[in-house]
Design a protein around this nucleic acid. Structure first.
Lengths: 207, 207
DNA sequence: ACCATGTGAGACATCTTTGTCTCATCAAAG
DNA sequence: CTTTGATGAGACAAAGATGTCTCACATGGT
């Protein structure tokens, strides 16, 4: 009967170790297995018992990132409502995983092998499809390709995660900053009149 | 005297080695000194004669990146004309260095030491000042902080460099894609012709 | 022809990280 | 209490990267 307890504890520990490793490797991508172990509060031996090696750890992190991305994509219901709202939901859902994404995004080593590649392309396709839907519905401009918008979303997520971790941006502004820049850009949308208290919200014409 | 020829050739070789190293390390940040040497067409011994070690090489790359950034900032004349045009000039000037920037951006190892830090903060300040100027002139929206706009510019440059190197975006579209997204965002700016009434755009009174 | 200098090739020791091992300890289930 | 199993600590060798060295070769100036 200890098997149930065993596997349960293992799963919890495994997840905790993965989270800790993600948090550490996001900051220092070259961290040692020993550092990863200490960051997770376990010994290097136990770390090795759960993940055969550094390669397996990174692969597991990649799987975790893919799973969280897909979960965020599902939770965001990209097919419902206006595309811009779907983008907003997507960024909000994916925010907790942004740090991990940023790490995996720079771990170009993964793209040499072919293993997990299909997982990412599936995610890419779903996001690109969202942008394409927005273009076809007339919400998004058509002179920026869905592939570029997808790439830009990744870049902005990574930048935002980095900026938050560095304290340059408040954590509570993560979603708003990312979505507003991705969708609206830096330019003001109304005529540069006086310094009217223009805020981020698209207001109805208040003549 | 041979001294002139000597120093001249050394400088040329040094620059060539740095460019090659930047191009390689952009793709694989963990490349070996031996790989760097082969990529530059020289032997590991010669590489080590020019750069005392990997640390010195990365430091030199950081100096090169700072120098190219500052050169781009100067060439872009950020103080002249509309801020949006200045942003366009900046991206165009900085494009050749985007790959190197992307590498240095992820080399968080550099930020642990304090050495070159002032160089980057100077660059950050100049770019942030540009965005602030655009906000004060009414061109840019004020609900996105200059610090975040600066960070987003870095992220988009890195994303664009990566997307180009992966073939997902045409190299000739680099500047346009980056600037258009950073300034204009993904949303359409004109009023909705067909389709149902828009809910997203802050439109001017559609007569 | 002679020498100087940069270069490539390779040997070598060193250091770090990794992967595997053993052993003592501790907690929980029986 | 006993037993089972996970854990931590540490030793150990293997692998890889780095830094340093020597030596042979080529080039270019004297």
């Amino acid at each position: 009967m200890s098997h149930m307890v065993y596997s349960c504890l293992m799963a919890v520990d495994r997840d905790h170790v993965l989270r800790s490793a993600a948090a550490l490797l996001t900051r220092r991508a070259t961290a040692t297995m020993d550092e990863v172990a200490r960051a997770a509060g376990i010994s290097r031996a136990t770390l090795h018992r759960q993940f055969a090696g550094r390669d397996a750890l990174v692969r597991a992190l990649e799987s975790l990132g893919i799973a969280e991305c897909e979960a965020a994509l599902d939770a965001a219901r990209l097919d419902e409502g206006p595309a811009r709202d779907a983008v907003h939901r997507l960024v909000r859902e994916i925010e907790p995983a942004a740090g991990l994404l940023a790490f995996l995004y720079t771990e170009n080593q993964l793209f040499e092998g072919d293993g997990q590649n299909t997982g990412w392309t599936r995610i890419d396709d779903r996001i690109a499809a969202l942008f394409r839907r927005g273009q076809e519905s007339g919400e998004f401009r058509i002179d920026l390709t869905p592939a570029w918008l997808t790439e830009a979303l990744y870049g902005l997520l990574a930048s935002a995660a980095w900026a938050v971790s560095e304290g340059r941006v408040a954590a509570k502004d993560f979603t708003r900053m990312t979505v507003e820049l991705l969708l609206g850009g830096a330019l003001r949308r109304d005529e540069p009149r006086r310094d009217e208290p223009r805020h981020d919200e698209p207001r109805r014409e208040e003549s």
